[in-house]
Write a protein that binds this DNA or RNA. Structure first.
Lengths: 335, 335
DNA sequence: CTGAAAGCGCTTACAG
DNA sequence: CTGAAAGCGCTTACAG
């Protein structure tokens, strides 16, 4: 590490110093091609000692690879979602690094894939992870048109897209089933953006759980596309009028607002109203009472997404859709 | 955009199609070197029409540049800090992209600079932005030893390090001064990690404000290194015993806990106790009462940091330290 | 098992 | 103003 100002070693330097050809050095390092065991070890010892590191750029140029994967992070996500993306990103990064890849980060907005186009056209990445999906997704359209390897974190209905997601439908179904079994037969739903595939999957789970329990669905207690505080408050008011037993929130931001509203109305949780959330961000962590919720392993999601992308880049076959598990965490708010 | 499966154009293809040399094409694109106006336009029109994009890898290899900057994000930050880093990152990204650079993202832990070393040794970046600094910072040590361009977001006492930060000392001084002028002469302080330079700067501001107001400092109402909930609760108890007029929190996570504790103790804010925070994350956004706090422009911070790094990479002189502004936002909690 | 050579797609002195 | 050539640091058929 003392090599301040010392010029970086190249493969030629190593070859010259050892009296072998560049090809030999290259083979010793990559492990590809036939090479004598002793030669190999001489090279390895030398580069170890002199801290030679190949220039990934040059390597990439020769192989027409970049050893970068692009990660598209939504630019506009809220505090609630941040920990999820952060943790997922850690999973991606760890996996990438373990395969000697790096992460090229870029931000996306729903209707602008300029950054994505730029990254692809500039030949800066070998593949891409899309961290969010829309029902009509121009990013996906573009990537498909280019034939570049990519996977999405989160589901799409597009059968051609390689995707990795938590099993939101079954997670939801299970949580709602449990609540229904607790004799909470009127479970209100608040939150979620309808154009997000995940919202649709959660709704499916909600519906299935009711079907399984033989309980009729009541559309009047389902409030989708409700995200702003005022709208949430109104939704809660209506749910109170409808005398639901429990309010299930599509995410923690919504849940937070629901809890605030209930506090204002002097409705005690869980005594007078049960509450559950389909998400478990750290934002609700310290709430009293503690909140029953679904829990997902974001890091694992990142890991699996990245591994899948790697397979894709290397031309291996992968599952078109990978669904990861979930946990139902029962806490005070539904006791 | 219809070029699915069509092979990427290279500079040779363009040269051949136009009956000129590769050098000419290169010059037309880069704008470097003498070139005839008409030739130049012919080339530009052609590449525009056929959507030719230079291979940045090859360009980089020829120039020994990568057109990437590395951004080190702390891996372990909390919900409170996330929006800050996120917004700052957006500023960095926008600036980088505008200069045709990309962001190589990596995570750091306090005592592990493995990822950083990897990124540098693999020749993957032309410069680096460190998103967080420590008083004794191995990342900084390493980068200095390598002589690679880098800037830090956040302050260091190291005079050799190019740094960009908000003026936390003066921000703090001004907020505390205002509070002191409001006849709140006993202002307790809670939170902050002493080894962070920012904490030291905030403390300096706190001290200066007292000096200017001619009010004696009282060490008994200053609680640094208090981060966990239980410790914060104890600190609040002690501050209540000491009968302070106001509690100033080093950040919003701490403030959140302070507010919870006060609520538990049935102390009304602001009636019985004023509260202020040195930070304005969105986490406290919806609090009632609204919380007086300092406000910083994270995006601008990112922009300036990135611009500074660019100058550095291009070998231009830059200010060793750039201090950006702040706002004091007075709200209900100190009324 | 090893080497010489061509090539990846660009840039940049050097001639002309 | 333009071109031929060398070079950036690697990889990889092709010979031997």
């Amino acid at each position: 590490m003392e090599q301040l100002n010392e010029k970086k070693l190249t493969i030629s330097d190593v070859a010259e110093a050892l009296g072998v050809s560049k090809s030999t050095v290259s083979r010793a390092i990559s492990g590809k091609g036939r090479i004598g065991k002793t030669t190999r070890e001489r090279v390895l010892t030398y580069i170890e000692k002199h801290n030679y590191k190949p220039n990934v750029l040059a390597k990439g140029l020769a192989q027409l690879k970049t050893y970068n994967i692009g990660v598209m992070l939504p630019e506009d996500y809220s505090v609630v979602d941040l920990p999820f993306f952060q943790t997922c990103l850690i999973g991606i990064e760890e996996t990438a690094v373990s395969m000697d890849y790096d992460i090229l980060l870029t931000m996306s907005r729903e209707n602008d894939c300029g950054q994505l186009v730029r990254m692809v056209e500039n030949h800066k990445v070998d593949g891409i992870v899309l961290m969010r999906t829309f029902t009509k997704d121009i990013h996906i359209e573009y990537l498909k048109s280019q034939g570049i390897p990519f996977v999405t974190v989160g589901s799409t209905n597009d059968q051609d897209v390689i995707q990795v997601d938590n099993d939101h439908k079954n997670a939801c179904r299970e949580l709602i089933s449990i609540l229904l079994m607790k004799k909470l037969s009127r479970i209100g739903l608040i939150g979620g953006i309808e154009s997000h595939v995940v919202t649709q999957n959660r709704l499916k789970g909600y519906i299935e759980a009711h079907k399984e329990a033989g309980i009729a669905l009541n559309q009047d207690i389902v409030f989708v596309n409700v995200e702003k505080e005022i709208m949430i408050q109104r939704a809660v008011e209506k749910l109170l009028q409808e005398q639901v037993d429990c309010i299930a929130c599509l995410d923690d931001a919504v849940c937070m607002h629901v809890l605030n509203k209930l506090r204002k109305e002097h409705i005690a949780v869980p005594k007078q109203m049960k509450v559950a959330s389909f998400y478990d961000s750290s934002i609700l962590e310290n709430n009293l009472p503690s909140i029953t919720s679904l829990s997902f392993n974001a890091r694992e999601l990142g890991t699996v997404a990245c591994k899948t992308l790697m397979e894709l880049i290397e031309g291996n076959a992968v599952k078109q859709r990978t669904l990861l598990g979930y946990e139902v965490i029962l806490k005070e708010s539904t006791m």
